[in-house]
Every structure is written in structure tokens, then in C-alpha cells.
Design a protein around this nucleic acid. Structure first.
Lengths: 141, 141
DNA sequence: CTTGAACCTCTAGTTGCTAGAGCTCCTATC
DNA sequence: GATAGGAGCTCTAGCAACTAGAGGTTCAAG
């Protein structure tokens, strides 16, 4: 049985984050020692590693909740898991596309700036006038 | 003089967002009509367009605050503006790199999945075992 | 047995908004 | 001039996914 600190150290998830995951029901309520401190078995380590890796891949906590509940039902079709992962892949691709447009835009702003004064700074000017943009860009990046 | 609704319509920034920008000091306090409703001149439109475009390019509100205060001092060197834009470009490039790694990882997960049951689903398995990843990936994406 | 690191709970803060309640105002139509 | 309803007002609370801090308890090493 591991303390929350050891679990944190072995998984790389911070202590308050582990408590937060328990609070929102991503992790089951931990057993407690006589002195009311959380104790974890190996299973919790695996579950937390799963959560961490999923977060690193950009899945939302809601997605992860669903993926975890799927992983608890080994006999079911994995189509649902594929749907979630495919959706995530879509988000990622979309974000890359947007960010590449932003990159070009920022590079253009910067290369045009002659390092003079603000009054003829192309960076400030470019921010003022969306019309000059090479790419349309809207909404969140 | 425009009402907040008209300003919203001409800039594409939602009404509550305009009020929020005023609240946090990104926009100066608006003049008011006899009946206490906000009234905006053309200048506010330009400032709001600047903010909007900057947000679309991924700048934080703090960055924008600084860029706006720079744009109010036309005689200053624009080096500071370049620093902010360069930092932003760095963030963007970094994010693209991370997201491309995630994309590969997600694609690998999905192509390996044979659409069977959860128990042999490569998506679920890949999420469990970070060790199998082609790329290291940590922290926020 | 003492010290201090690690644990506990609880509240509040972060970013950039968005949603809702409950009210007032303005404008268009009759 | 009355009235309906859309637009405006303020205020509070909520979203994701944590993070930070206060103030108190427990555990383990020396």
C-alpha cells in the first residue's frame, strides 16, 4: 500500500491532482489508514497511469471517464473507444492546421518589422488590420 | 455613437465579452447614455478589433494589454512588441511539434486496433502503457 | 520523545469567458 | 400616448483542470 506521496512520485501526477481526481470520481475513494491518510494498491497506480497518459494525449477528463468505464468491460466491442480516439485525432489535426496558419502569420509580422519605432511597427499594424492577413483565422486556437 | 449591441455586431465580439474586457481594464470605461447604457465611438471599435485579432493569433489578454499600451506610445522602439510576438511564435511552434507527436500516436493506436473487443483493443492498451509510445510526450498540449 | 516532512480538509484563485436571474430602458407600432 | 418586446443593465455563479494557501493532524527518522 502506497501513501499518496509515493503514488504521486511513481506516476508523476501531483498530490493535489490525485485528490482532485478522487473528488470528481475519476479515481475511486481511497482506503484510509488508521490516521485517515489515503492508501493505494497497485491497481490505483495503473488507473492513474492510464489517466495521465490519456491527459498527455489531450483527452478531456470526460473522455477519460468514458475510456475508463470501457476498459472495465472487456467483453464489449471497442468501437466506442475508437470513436473517442478518432474524435480526438480530429481535434488534434484541426488544431495543427490552425496553428500552422498562425505561425505563418506571426512570422510574416516579424519579418516585416524593421525594428524601428512603434509608429511604423508592422507587428502592431498587423494586429490592427485583420484584412491584411494571408489566412483567415477565427475562433479558438 | 454605437450601442454595445451594434459594437458587438460590427466587431464580432460578443456583448458580455465586451463588458468583460471593460471590467478587466482592456477597454476604457464606456461613456453612458442618459439611461446608463454604454455608448462607443469609432476608437473603441478599432481597439476592440485589435484585441480580437490578437486573441485569434493566440495572444493572452496580458500580452494584449502590453501590446495595447505599446501601441499608445508611437515614439518608442518596437523591440518590446517583437519580444512578445517572438515569444508567441515560440509557443505556437512548440505546440505544433507536440501536437504532431500526438497525432502520430493517435494514428498508431487507431490503425493497430482490429475493431474487436475491449480486451484486445489497442487503443485502450496504448493508453495503459506509455512505454510503448514512439514519442515521449509530457505536460500540456 | 521530538522534530519536521508529509498528510488532512477547506476555500479561493487561475484564464477567458458564458449563462442566468431579475431588473430597467429604448424604440416601434397602434 | 400606451404598450410590447428586444436590448440593455448589474450581479452572481459556472466551465475546465487544476494550483495555491491556510490551518491543523499524523507519521517516521533520529
Amino acid at each position: 500500500m502506497l501513501s499518496i506521496g509515493k503514488l504521486s512520485a511513481t506516476t508523476g501526477v501531483k498530490v493535489p491532482t490525485i485528490r482532485y481526481y478522487e473528488e470528481i470520481g475519476l479515481l475511486p475513494e481511497a482506503e484510509r489508514s488508521a490516521g485517515n491518510q489515503r492508501l493505494y494498491a497497485t491497481k490505483a497506480q495503473e488507473r492513474l497511469a492510464f489517466i495521465r497518459h490519456s491527459r498527455e494525449l489531450g483527452f478531456s477528463l470526460d473522455d477519460i471517464r468514458e475510456l475508463l468505464s470501457l476498459s472495465d468491460r472487456p467483453d464489449m466491442s471497442c468501437a466506442a473507444a475508437d470513436v473517442i480516439a478518432t474524435r480526438q485525432l480530429g481535434f488534434v489535426k484541426d488544431r495543427i492546421t490552425r496553428l500552422q496558419a498562425l505561425q505563418q502569420e506571426l512570422e510574416r509580422m516579424l519579418t516585416q518589422c524593421a525594428q524601428g519605432t512603434i509608429s511604423d511597427c508592422k507587428v502592431i499594424e498587423a494586429l490592427s488590420n485583420h484584412e491584411n492577413c494571408l489566412h483567415p483565422h477565427h475562433g479558438e486556437v
